[in-house]
């Protein structure tokens, strides 16, 4: 049920992330760079020097993981196109066309059920704040799952075309 590799007793509470290196922390910070950010801001989040962040960012930019926006200073942004491409590739490699098609149909059913339930075409059209405070958390989860299903269907459709 769990990864057994590191289960030889709990790690010390005072330094739970000791094994983590700067490169990994910069990667973790990049995932939250949803708009262009300066290396200094990313360094701050990754708890490293700006110099060190720049080194890793330039490596990640070469790989296509971040988009580098030239300027002074240069800014960096998570490259969603790259991650999407990677996900579609993995789906196409790991599944047959039939499996992908089946998943697309399943997601379409889910999406239609949400449409019927809320009476609108997309989750963005639902005003969550109109619902009772008691139900709002559940509705928000629902709408996020709806948004997730829409995206998943799009990615699975792309993968199906690729796998053909």
């Amino acid at each position: 049920m769990t990864d057994d590799t590191r289960r030889d007793g709990p790690p010390p509470v005072d330094s739970p992330f000791e094994g983590e290196n700067t490169k990994e922390r910069v990667y973790g910070a990049i995932l939250h760079a949803r708009e262009p950010m300066m290396a200094a801001e990313i360094a701050d989040r990754a708890d490293c020097s700006a110099e060190s962040a720049r080194t890793h960012l330039s490596f990640y930019a070469d790989l296509g993981i971040v988009i580098r926006h030239e300027g002074s200073p240069a800014k960096y942004e998570r490259n969603d196109d790259y991650f999407e491409w990677r996900r579609v590739n993995n789906l196409a490699r790991e599944h047959t066309v039939d499996e992908l098609q089946a998943r697309v149909s399943e997601l379409t059913d889910q999406i239609e059920a949400y449409r019927d339930e809320y009476g609108v075409d997309s989750p963005a059209e639902v005003d969550v704040l109109k619902f009772d405070a008691e139900r709002i958390d559940d509705i928000y989860v629902d709408l996020s799952e709806w948004a997730t299903a829409l995206e998943e269907r799009r990615l699975h459709e792309r993968a199906r075309k690729k796998a053909n």
Binding site: D80, A124, Y140, S144, W146, T148, E152
Partner: peptide, 15 residues
């Protein structure tokens, strides 16, 4: 990717 990062809600899961 859908511009879900403009603070708009609801947004899909961030896998």
């Amino acid at each position: 990717m859908v511009p879900a990062d403009d603070g708009a809600s609801p947004a899909p899961i961030d896998r």
